[in-house]
C-alpha cells in the first residue's frame, strides 16, 4: 500500500507527548516516526542509550513509551536489547510466551552512544545477528552533556570541546562514516535517512528494517537546535537542506547492494546548510572561505564515492 501520512497519523501513538525533549529537536520526531512503522498488533521492546532521549522520556515515575522500555547505561543499548531479544527467542522456544503476535526489538542511541562509546556493543550485537533494529539519532555531538564533539561532529563545527577559537577553528577532523561501517558488517538492511517532507523515506526505511529478519541499522539525522544553533521552527528546513546539499544522502544497503534513494536535481551549495546554523558562524568570517570550500570538496568526494558504490558512476 502506498505511503499516506494522513493514514499513518491515525494510528494510536506509541510515543506520547508530554516528554521533555526540546522544541525543534529532531530526535522525538525520529522515534515517533520509527514506532509508527510498527504494525499496530505487534509489541515492541524499546531500549535507549543514556542521552537526551532517555532522560527526557522516562523520568520516574513517568514514561512516554507505550511499549516495553529499558534503559541501562550509555554504551550498551545494543547489548541490552540483544539480551532482551535472546530472552524472547528462548522463551518462545520453551513455550513461555503466547505463540501469536510478534515482538520487535528496537534500540535507540544518539551519535555519542553509537559512533563512540557504544560502537563496540553495536558492532557485536549486529555481527551476532539478533533480530533487532538499531536506530542512531545522529545530532552530531554529545548534546545531553552540553554539546561536546563526537566522531559524528562535522569538521569545523563549534562545540564546547572543539570550540572555534582564535587559533583552532572548531573541530579539526572529518566525521566518521558510520552508515558505511555498518554496511560493511554485511547486515541484511542498513539505511541512512532523515525526517523530511511527509516522513516517507524514514517511515519506509523503518518499516523495512523492522520487518527484515536479522540485525538492521538505521542512521537518522536528528538536528539539535541547542547544539546547531538554529531557530526551532526551522527543524524540517535544516533536515531538508542536509539532504539537498548531499551532506546527508538518503540511501540504503540491502545485503551489500547500495541504492541511493534521492539524487537532488540541483545539488545545493553547502553554504545553504551551514548558514542557518550558529555552530558554523565563524566559517562566514572574511578569510575563512577556504574552509567552506574544503567542506564542499569533502561532500562532493563522498557523494561521488556513494554513487560509485551504488553503481551509478
Amino acid at each position: 500500500m502506498a505511503y499516506n501520512l494522513k493514514q499513518e497519523a491515525k494510528k494510536p501513538e506509541r510515543f506520547t507527548g508530554g516528554h521533555r525533549m526540546c522544541a525543534g529537536c529532531g530526535a522525538p520526531v525520529v522515534s515517533r516516526t520509527v514506532l509508527r512503522a510498527l504494525k499496530p498488533e505487534d509489541h515492541a521492546v524499546v531500549g535507549a542509550a543514556t542521552g537526551c532521549m532517555e532522560v527526557s522520556t522516562f523520568l520516574y515515575p513517568y514514561t512516554a513509551w507505550k511499549d516495553s522500555f529499558i534503559h541501562s547505561a550509555f554504551e550498551n543499548v545494543a547489548a541490552t536489547i540483544s539480551g532482551a531479544e535472546a530472552a524472547y527467542v528462548a522463551m518462545k522456544r520453551k513455550g513461555k510466551l503466547p505463540a501469536d503476535g510478534e515482538t520487535k526489538f528496537i534500540a535507540f542511541g544518539g551519535d555519542g552512544g553509537t559512533y563512540d562509546i557504544g560502537l563496540q556493543s553495536l558492532s557485536g550485537a549486529m555481527e551476532r545477528g539478533h533480530d533487532m533494529v538499531y536506530v542512531c539519532y545522529d545530532n552530531g555531538a554529545y548534546m545531553n552533556t552540553g554539546i561536546q564533539r563526537s566522531s559524528a561532529t562535522p569538521k569545523y563545527a563549534d562545540t564546547t570541546t572543539s570550540p572555534a577559537g582564535s587559533v583552532i577553528p572548531g573541530k579539526s577532523q572529518y566525521r566518521k562514516d558510520l552508515t558505511l561501517i555498518m554496511a560493511n558488517h554485511r547486515l541484511p538492511y542498513v539505511a541512512q535517512t532523515a525526517p523530511i517532507g511527509n516522513f516517507r523515506d524514514l517511515h519506509q526505511k523503518a518499516e523495512k528494517a523492522l520487518y527484515t529478519k536479522g540485525a538492521c541499522f538505521l542512521n537518522v539525522l536528528a538536528p539539535c537546535p541547542r547544539g546547531w544553533r538554529y531557530d526551532t521552527p526551522k527543524l524540517m528546513d535544516i533536515s531538508k537542506l542536509a539532504v539537498e546539499t548531499c551532506i546527508w544522502p538518503l540511501y540504503e544497503v540491502e545485503n551489500g547492494k547500495v541504492t541511493v534513494n534521492y539524487k537532488p536535481k540541483n545539488k545545493l551549495p553547502v553554504e545553504e546548510y551551514l548558514k542557518p546554523q550558529g555552530r558554523f558562524r565563524h566559517l562566514f568570517k572574511k578569510g575563512n572561505e577556504h574552509m567552506i570550500a574544503e567542506i564542499q570538496a569533502e561532500i562532493d568526494s563522498r557523494w561521488e564515492e556513494l554513487l560509485m558504490l551504488a553503481g551509478e558512476k
Binding site: 541501562s72 547505561a73 547489548a79 541490552t80 539480551g83 532482551a84 530472552a87
Partner: peptide, 10 residues
C-alpha cells in the same frame, strides 16, 4: 548488559 536485558525481558 545482555544479562540485564535478558533477565528484565523475563
Amino acid at each position: 548488559s545482555a544479562c540485564i536485558g535478558a533477565q528484565a525481558a523475563g
